[in-house]
Amino acid sequence: MIRIEHLTKVFGGEKVVDDLSFVLEAGTSTALIGPNGAGKTTTLSMLTGLLKPTNGSIRMNDTQDIRKEIGFLPQYPNFYPWLTALEFTEMTGKLNGVPSRDAKKQAERVLDFVGLTNDRSKKTSTFSGGMKQRLGIAQAIVHKPKLLILDEPVSALDPVGRREVINLLKQLQQHSTILYSTHILNDAEEMTDQLLFLKKGQLVEQGSLKDIRTKFDSFRYKIQFTSKEEASLFATQSQLPTTVEESYAFIEIKDGFPTMQELMSQLIVLPFSILKVERVTMTLEEIFMKVVGQ
């Protein structure tokens, strides 16, 4: 378990990260979500020990040097062009205390896991973006860290590369604690136990996906008419707050009102035909916009 308390970073008088407190339970995945400039990378940098916090503490049980227990993948990992993938992974493993006699085997194992077995003897200067990202994962897990920290692990990848990396992360998720930042919310939806919403350095919301949904998700009804005119006509007559988009009318439910029955009773008396009525839940992206827009 990693406990972060009152974490603060000030750069030139400006609070880039402002009093963050949260807990990473062992074996869970946490997504750090926020727009660009929200302080995600700064937060992760402090957790990796690269940056010294202005204030606050990061504690992992009774570990002294937290760097021993961490694996880190930067958004754009940079490698020494004169080393091969295997040499680099072996070296980073050794630097993290993997015994010399096991280091090569362990490096081969993780390179196999990320699918670089055939490229492990190539210099990293010849690697593509996707290969670098996979090598980045390999060097982050070579020493079996307790906490895996990933900065925008898939943002820079093409759809194929993204899928590959997400699948790797899903496998890793089963037996490690993961903290990752992202601004692509579909990724977060796929592999997250806890969400942390960051805005201007502050933690504006946190909780499980389910909790946040219940808290913020207002259900909406989407009613499809045959034309835009009919939808607009409905909107003017409706006693409920209604918005129109093309031939759809949207009615938002707040505090359980109106109920489905009330809505139906309004619809049933309409003089024109209704093609479809459905209840839509908000995407994480919409929730995010709502939380951050507050």
Binding site: T48, G49, L50, D65, R67, K68, I70, F72, P74, Y76, P77, N78, F79, Y80, T92, L95, N96, G97, G136, Q139
Partner: peptide, 13 residues
């Protein structure tokens, strides 16, 4: 400057 140090500095060196 080229970022290669990052993956060294995050280790317990």
């Amino acid at each position: 400057q080229n970022g290669t140090a990052t993956l060294i500095y995050v280790r317990p060196i």
